[in-house]
Nucleic acid binder design. Sequence first.
DNA 1: GCCCAGGGCACTG
DNA 2: CAGTGCCATGGG
Length: 220
Amino acid sequence: MSGIGEGELINLYKKLFEFYGKQNWWPVDYEYHTLYKTDPREEIIIGAILTQNISWRNVEKALENLKKAKALSFEGIGKIPLDKLKELIKSSGFYKQKAVYLKNFVEIFRSIDDLKNISREELLKVKGIGRETADVILLYALDRLSFVVDTYTKRLLIRLWNIEGSYEEIKKLFEENLPKDLEIYKEFHALIDVHCKKFCRKKPVCKDCPIADICSFYSR
DNA sequence: GCCCAGGGCACTG
DNA sequence: CAGTGCCATGGG
């Protein structure tokens, strides 16, 4: 699948970090959680489900609605009626199934503590939790060394080095060639997304791209 | 009006 | 295991 090693990925990381700076993902409203004594990690998981194949802008509106309803927590999600939940998260698209996913999730896991010893395989059994969402939960909410792959990551690897692979293959590629460091895992995924939104879009914008010098697509 | 966005499920071959 | 249809809103 690939012919790159540790050097290339670290180099990519350094270049992106240098250009964009620290991203501090996952975004969370700590003031809200301090005020209502809820756990910010639960917001990460709720957001991870809401953002499936939807722009973050649409998710932010849904999160705001949940805050106003004091429902941005597992307990809060569990308390509000399903129909009410659907209304609140409507802006995040696919809202009927996402509402069911959320309800089901907080039914299984009553609080963040119930996830303390969860494995990736167990998470993947939960309806609505696929590979990417599971890895987001593991990395950003539970501080586990599980690299997150998304469509941006795949697109970038194809453009940069013409590397294609399944989700698990790409995930392995990163995990085998990066230092086992939580901050690097978190920031790298965030940087890839930020970069792909700005430059490496579906229709690539190569002008002024900060990593054009290491990109095989650019030199074609 | 068209395209796309921080995927996942169910079903098919 | 890979491919496809479906889910649905909102901004560019």
